[in-house]
């Protein structure tokens, strides 16, 4: 482990998101995702009621949770917390595509792709490891408001961010 206990995080700052979907499309393009597969999704959130109403946005991809419920639920043991970067990693060879993780994840993150394997955001680290250069995750690189920031944080900070996102994600579905 490089920095003990430090995990990768793509931080989302709602105040800086203008809901342009650039991150979502950058991800699809750079990762060559097939139609229907979305590693990153952008949502609108309403606050209040007409006419006193405002809105905000959420750009969401895998949070690489400190305690991932998808890993706990996977009957094949194909999902595990990778130690060096704190990534939630999918062993594609072991994945049966059963979809239990899709149900287990509280954020709708896991995507069952055309070949029957679960894939999702890997902070582009696996992709780099497989020999495809990216430099910076394209979602982060492209964001005009710097609402997405790549960081390494300790677990308590990661949990704090996770709770914030959990709240926002709940609000996307409240109306």
């Amino acid at each position: 482990m490089g920095q003990t206990g430090m995990e990768y995080l793509i931080r989302f700052e709602a105040e800086r998101c203008i809901q342009c979907h650039g991150c979502e499309t950058a991800c699809k393009s750079w990762r060559g995702l097939e139609p229907g597969v979305r590693y990153r999704r952008v949502f609108n959130i309403w606050h209040g009621q007409y006419p006193l109403i405002t809105s905000s946005s959420l750009s969401l991809s895998c949070l690489h949770c400190v305690e991932p419920s998808c890993a706990a639920a996977c009957p094949e043991g194909a999902i595990f917390k990778e130690p060096e970067y704190g990534m939630v990693h999918v062993d594609e060879a072991a994945c049966s595509g059963c979809g239990v993780c899709v149900e287990a994840c509280g954020y709708g993150v896991p995507q069952i792709t055309g070949d029957g394997v679960m894939r999702k955001c890997d902070v582009c680290i696996d992709h780099e490891a497989a020999g495809e250069a990216i430099e910076v995750p394209p979602c982060v690189d492209t964001c005009p408001g710097t609402a997405l920031i790549l960081e390494r944080v300790d677990r308590s900070e990661k949990v704090r961010h996770e709770r914030l996102i959990q709240k926002l994600y709940g609000e996307t579905r409240s109306v």
Partner: peptide
């Protein structure tokens, strides 16, 4: 350095 959805498509 920013690009929108259209630009990436």
């Amino acid at each position: 350095g920013g690009v929108c959805a259209k630009g990436h498509a």
